[in-house]
């Protein structure tokens, strides 16, 4: 049975625990960290208004202290009106960040997996010229660094949305939609430019399965291509793609945080928090950890998030693919 084989490894249980813990954190966010405005919670909460730029250390009412001041930057998912000269509660962002991270990771992974699997399986099953063409395009996209894609999309479509002098809530049409749905350029670019591994994988799988007797038999019985793909090819080839997807969730969130960290706009709140504490990582008077609360908790959250999904992927791999690895 799959569940027993899956749960036999200790590392898998650790991974599953981590993923479930982050899921719970995201689910219970309103209880663990009650928002100021229950109708429209943002992953950031103002806690103090001061003229000091120093992050406040952990203390009563502030379990993990505050970040340094953040300017009003619409590109980081900070709501307009939550103005400059505010400092954010680290604990609050940590909790609500789990929600934004899971949302980002799952949306991106499901969408890329869907595109990649569709491209790979259809071209692989059809074979011939369409296969050649699809794989040529896939290989071309594989040579494209996703960071350039993020930038192209940000510069082409998010100029008004991320305009620091504008009010994003006043936008209408598709720009207003993108802002309110919290769709960021990183999400779009990841979906457009990271489906290739799935396509390659599923293409190879589909070409292998296509020659199998059960597919031949279904074809001989007059099943349509659509039916053969849904009933026979897909169920027999999907396993490695599931493994890849599980590992991708963590990886995508981490890469998105890295992009936010170097200055792209995005809605993964952990990444935003790291940008804000960028200057404070170097610490004070030669002690690098004098402002530890501004970057250590959020770094740990990101690392554990990545490790959890990675271990889950390894476990799925061991359970679904008993021969290899």
């Amino acid at each position: 049975m799959l569940p027993r084989r899956f749960l036999r490894r200790r590392s898998t249980i650790l991974g599953l625990t981590l993923v479930l813990a982050f899921g719970l954190l995201a689910l219970l966010a309103p209880v663990l960290a009650p928002p100021l405005n229950p109708d429209d919670p943002w992953p950031f909460m103002n806690v103090s208004q001061s003229f000091s730029r120093q992050p406040e250390p952990p203390g009563p009412g502030l379990p993990l202290g505050t970040t340094p001041q953040i300017q009003n930057m619409p590109q980081y998912g900070i709501a307009p009106g939550q103005d400059a000269s505010f400092q954010w509660d680290v604990y609050y962002t940590l909790v609500w960040g789990a929600r934004s991270a899971l949302r980002f990771g799952l949306v991106v992974t499901l969408a890329t997996a869907f595109i990649g699997i569709a491209v790979g399986i259809v071209s692989g099953y059809a074979g011939g010229l369409s296969n050649l063409l699809a794989m040529r395009v896939t290989d071309a996209f594989l040579a494209f660094p996703v960071i350039a894609g993020v930038w192209v999309i940000q510069r082409a479509f998010f100029g008004n949305i991320y305009n620091p002098f504008g009010d994003p809530l006043a936008l209408t049409g598709w720009e207003g939609f993108l802002y309110r749905a919290r769709i960021d350029p990183i999400m779009i670019a990841f979906i457009l430019f990271s489906w290739m591994p799935y396509a390659r994988l599923m293409n190879a799988q589909a070409r292998r399965v296509k020659e199998m007797d059960y597919v031949r038999a279904a074809e001989a019985m007059g099943a349509t291509s659509r039916r053969v793909i849904w009933r026979h090819v897909l169920p027999n080839t999907i396993a490695p793609a599931i493994v890849l997807a599980a590992r991708d969730v963590g990886g995508m969130v981490i890469l998105a945080s890295a992009f936010i960290f170097i200055g792209f706009g995005g809605n993964v709140a952990w990444g935003t928090m790291l940008v804000s504490s960028r200057e404070f990582v170097i610490g004070l008077n030669g002690n690098p950890f004098s402002y530890w609360w501004t970057f250590v908790p959020v770094s740990l959250a990101l690392i554990l998030f990545g490790v959890g999904w990675n271990l889950l992927g390894d476990g799925l791999n061991a359970a679904l693919n008993p021969h290899g690895r």
Binding site: S257, A258, V281, I282, G283, G286, S299, I303
Partner: peptide, 21 residues
């Protein structure tokens, strides 16, 4: 594989530049 490069970079900077110089 667990530690993302940009976080690793930050920690390395704070240790080897700020701490040890």
């Amino acid at each position: 594989t667990s530690v993302p490069p940009f976080i690793l970079g930050l920690f390395l900077l704070s240790i080897f530049y700020v701490g040890l110089g």
